[in-house]
Design a protein around this nucleic acid. Structure first.
Lengths: 171, 171
DNA sequence: ATCTTAAATGTATATTTTTGCATAAAAATT
DNA sequence: AATTTTTATGCAAAAATATACATTTAAGAT
């Protein structure tokens, strides 16, 4: 552990940073990794462009030719309209989240009755690397994880998809 | 005009080529401009990477981190237009559709648990002429139909909104 | 056809992005 | 706490991509 890192953190640095990146990307127009890096540095994330490149890869951020001239980086979710509505909906759904348990490469999420399929649908839609597939009943979601993906990997990914979840997942 | 250019062309070279690029991108997995360039050269398009870069910009082709490792180029229509993803989502939701019954100007759709509000939201969003409003519980949707709209009118409208539904509705 | 003008392209180069590798940090284990 | 294992990161170098500028090609105009 780094000496001057007072570990009150809930999430690891990486996840925190990637959430910040997502936010920046949905908030402002980003035309290069350099530009994004500058912003991140100002916000106190002390990283290099290399790390940023890896983060963008993890987040599946696309580089798209801009209408005018130049390019812009875009989180795939942002491409859908009604981003806000989706967000609202997702936040709402999180209320139904009860707990998550693991067994080998399987994870089981317990939800309030009726929530399972909706939450699962959010997961399916996000189509994250770590998840091969989900099966949802009424109050239970079975997640089949990709091999060599750790429990924390999955938790972090879930937080990336549903930020509010952070408050419900203990580390 | 260059001397050895036999002018049978209908479109100009540039357009022809860009169409070819689009086709290639939708047909095969492209991971770099170099790779795409190789294919184009084989097909007889005698250009350089610089031109290709410009073409991709014109076509608004996005570079997206691939699920596994690496990147792929994707024609922006696929990403930009939430059409496709919305469609996917709608198709997914249809799995939750169980049956529909009528009574007067009311229709009741039964769904798998948890699906009702999502499907109802699709209907609300489409805002069809035939429907005044919907109320959704967990596995039931109540549809209030406009007067003088027949059961078949509504069924047809539902199919228009959610094409996959056709397979589930008997006539 | 010849000339003029605008668009497209190649060359070389600059810029940006990605990655292998060594190291540091974090997490798990004892 | 000390050790091992795993994961994240910086650095430097490679790879990929974009572009300024000169040149060629196409398209009109006369």
């Amino acid at each position: 552990m780094h000496k001057n890192c007072i570990d009150i953190q809930i999430m690891n640095q990486r996840t925190t940073r990637q959430l910040a990146i997502k936010k920046i990307l949905t908030t402002r127009e980003i035309h290069s990794q350099e530009g994004l890096l500058t912003i991140l540095l100002k916000e106190g994330f002390d990283i290099t462009q290399a790390t940023l490149s890896r983060d963008l890869k993890t987040l599946k951020v696309a580089k798209i030719p801009d209408g005018n001239a130049g390019y812009r980086y875009s989180v795939s979710e942002r491409i859908h309209k009604d981003h806000d509505k989706t967000k609202e909906k997702v936040n709402f759904l999180i209320d139904g989240f009860e707990c998550i348990k693991f067994s080998g490469n399987l994870a089981v999420i317990k939800t309030l009755p009726g929530y399972a399929s909706s939450i699962a649908s959010v997961l399916d839609n996000a189509d994250p690397y770590e998840i091969i597939g989900t099966i949802a009943g009424d109050d239970t979601i079975l997640i089949i994880m990709k091999e060599n993906v750790s429990q924390n990997d999955l938790k972090n990914r879930l937080i990336l998809i549903m930020p509010k979840l952070r408050d419900k997942l203990k580390y």
